[in-house]
């Protein structure tokens, strides 16, 4: 995890993404840094609005612009910086080296083209396959993600498939060119509970099979526990804690992480009357406090928390980095 390692597949440094609003400039992502190695899975965790989706979009140069823009920082992928890369270069990478799948399977596919046509399109562009080859690869991929009768389904329109099936199509499309990195933005949130587990399992199995790295963006710590090796917890655009999954769940250092963990219901626990919740509200990104953004909701708040925001620092004798003056022991 530490920045001295150089064999990372993707390494993000001090990424800042800003949005122009008519009430001023809004900093959606503020100084985010992390590394991801080949084959590894990194969980990007936080509430909605914390900047995790924008971080994910930055990996493909897809921050909606205007009003958004990457203000500073670098994203090194395979030896080149994605931040300074031009649109043509990014297009070569999108869908072939780095793929992304989205939260809303119902609207993420083009409704007026058959799914086969949309999948072939990706394959023909990036792999330079013929139409016939692309067609059979598309069917192969649909079979791999567990779609029954793929040879028939390939001629369906998106609206003829259920949400779970559409998300499988998205996954098939995303993996069809064998990318090195998959950015999965809440891939199962919009699905019903039984489908969620199946789709997630599918993604993890295929990830191993293809040997690719994955950034899993989610608000669900349970999903992170099941699938990831590393986790990055974000709050108001900043990383508050970065560590291995084992360390994160065994001893969460940041009070926010601890609060998130405490609010997950556990079957094994004694019967709890009420699940603990984090008091207060997420502050408005346009009017962030001067100090730590979590200060107003934190039980361990000190005076200096309100004056200056803590930096993300590696805790001695651990593999965990935390942005807190008073981390949990």
């Amino acid at each position: 995890m530490a920045s001295t390692e150089n064999n990372a597949l993707l390494s993000v440094r001090d990424l800042v993404v800003e949005f122009e609003t008519d009430q001023g400039v809004l900093r959606a992502v503020d100084g985010v840094s992390f590394d991801i190695h080949p084959g590894e899975t990194l969980g990007l965790v936080g509430e909605s609005g914390c900047g995790k989706t924008v971080t994910g979009l930055s990996m493909l140069g897809l921050v909606p612009s205007p009003p958004g823009r990457i203000a500073s920082g670098s994203i090194m992928f395979d030896g080149s910086d994605l931040v300074s890369m031009d649109e043509t270069g990014l297009r070569e990478i999108r869908g072939s080296q780095i793929s992304m799948i989205f939260q809303e399977p119902m609207t993420a596919l083009n409704p007026v083209f058959r799914i086969g046509s949309q999948m072939r399109d990706v394959l023909q562009r990036h792999q330079k396959l013929t139409r016939r080859q692309a067609h059979s690869t598309a069917i192969e991929m649909l079979a791999k993600v567990g779609i029954p009768e793929p040879a028939g389904r390939v001629d369906d329109y998106p609206h003829q498939l259920s949400g779970g099936m559409r998300q499988r199509v998205m996954i098939a499309m995303a993996l069809s060119c064998g990318p090195k990195l998959l950015v999965a933005d809440e891939p199962t949130t919009a699905l019903d509970v039984t489908t969620q587990a199946q789709v997630l399992e599918q993604v993890v199995r295929l990830q191993k099979e293809f040997g690719m790295a994955m950034i899993l963006i989610t608000h669900d710590l349970g999903v992170v526990a099941e699938t990831c090796q590393q986790a990055v917890v974000m709050y108001c655009g900043r990383i508050v804690e970065r560590s291995s999954i084992e360390a994160l769940f065994a001893s969460p250092r940041h009070p926010y992480t601890a609060g998130l963990l405490a609010s997950i219901p556990r079957v094994t626990d004694e019967r709890q009357e009420v699940l603990p919740v984090i008091p207060g509200m997420v502050p408005d990104l346009l009017h962030l406090p001067q100090g730590c953004a979590f200060a107003e909701r934190c039980s361990r708040v000190r005076d200096r928390c309100r004056q200056k925001s803590p930096r993300l620092e590696l805790l001695q004798s651990t593999q965990t980095s935390v942005a807190c003056y008073e981390p949990n022991a």
């Binding site: 897809l62 990014l90 999108r94 072939s96 989205f102 609207t107 993420a108 083009n110 562009r125 998205m170």
Partner: peptide
């Protein structure tokens, strides 16, 4: 779906 298409280059 326009964003999806862009994400696939």
């Amino acid at each position: 779906h326009v964003r999806t298409a862009r994400a696939f280059g």
